[in-house]
Design a binder for these strands. Sequence first.
DNA 1: GATGATTTGTGCGTATGTATG
DNA 2: GCATACATACGCACAAATCAT
Lengths: 225, 225
Amino acid sequence: MTFSIQRPVSYHDQVHRYLKDMIIKGRYQPGERIYESKIAKELQVSRSPVREAIRTLEQEGLLLIDEKSKITVYEPTLKDLEDIYQCRQALESLAVSLATQSAKKETLELIERTLREANREFEQNSCQSAQALLHLNTRFHDLIIEASQNRRLQKQLHDLRSLTFFYRSKNIEKRERCFEIISQHQGIYRSMRQRDEAKAAELMRRHIEADLCYLKTVLFGEKSE
Amino acid sequence: MTFSIQRPVSYHDQVHRYLKDMIIKGRYQPGERIYESKIAKELQVSRSPVREAIRTLEQEGLLLIDEKSKITVYEPTLKDLEDIYQCRQALESLAVSLATQSAKKETLELIERTLREANREFEQNSCQSAQALLHLNTRFHDLIIEASQNRRLQKQLHDLRSLTFFYRSKNIEKRERCFEIISQHQGIYRSMRQRDEAKAAELMRRHIEADLCYLKTVLFGEKSE
DNA sequence: GATGATTTGTGCGTATGTATG
DNA sequence: GCATACATACGCACAAATCAT
């Protein structure tokens, strides 16, 4: 194992991660008002680093600060969910297209292994494996995004995807939907292997559309056309 | 005229705008190191609001902060320029597609007027009109992005485009390229009027590709295939 | 390396703004 | 409208890290 001295992580960075986690995991309610002074007290730090963390989170879209400096947690609306998914369609289809062009063998194998593990967890069909499946499916997307080798794309998608993660953490995937997800992922992977970037992009676009459609029914009880 | 009481703009907001302007206008050199303490002194404010502005700018990609807290101005590389333009292709073609679907008559007329003004300035062919042309061309894109009515898309493109503005402020457009830009814009606009979203998206994609190609030759002296 | 000059990280006090009774 | 409680905005002080000599 390689050893390296770690620089202590700055408070504003730690506060940033803490708050991001709290929001994504749903420990704060969407739309809930939060107080920088309260957070500072809770975490036993002064308000300065908290303020900086809050600016960062505002920029990431996870916090909203109104004209009276009232800080509220991001609250997704149906329209916003659709907006986010439209962007994801455009960007992730680009990502998979780039990845298909340039992914090395090892990367493809990594993706394949992720899919195989997902299959195994699916067949297990336990409560624990549902959690594992969630991670594996996220990983599938992450591997592709990373393989795109486009830093800007990575950052944009990273930010967009955090906004949708807290839906996921509710573990709302029904078994039926899980099966669909896995088979869609497999289709995308097959196109990547065949180096068919147009097909991979198109399948990704449809996969994300299906995902939105599913989320809409589950969260807002709306049937999509 | 309507009158409304204005809230004073917070320091961190003003500092943010100031720094963003300095960076985009090229008043700081790309890669130049800047000091929060120096900025605070220059602007006669304390370091607190400056620090917050810096966090925001870091998140926007205009400042980089390394692990030793050294703050440097964003420095575009050829690869980064390509990355940005790939994202813009994906997102602006989505934007024009959405705008084509939903733009009202008035919006289309606004775009048309912008194009007509651009034509006029082009024919004028003066130093002043070159500057005006730059603004009008930017406005063309802005109007379409706004017409997409997708907030996420707007923010993402807004951030990406700031990163490319300081190239523009160098006034590098040759007359020949200006003509191309205008005619490409007109092609996009025609497709929008005909409500042909696929064509509008494809033309936007090509327009942005051409733009990248031109920038590459001008800035990095590289011919693109 | 050791030392002094900068620079950043953080805590804290005060002024000011906002909500509530 | 006023008083109180509490929130945020900002400036400032000091410690720790960094850099140059």
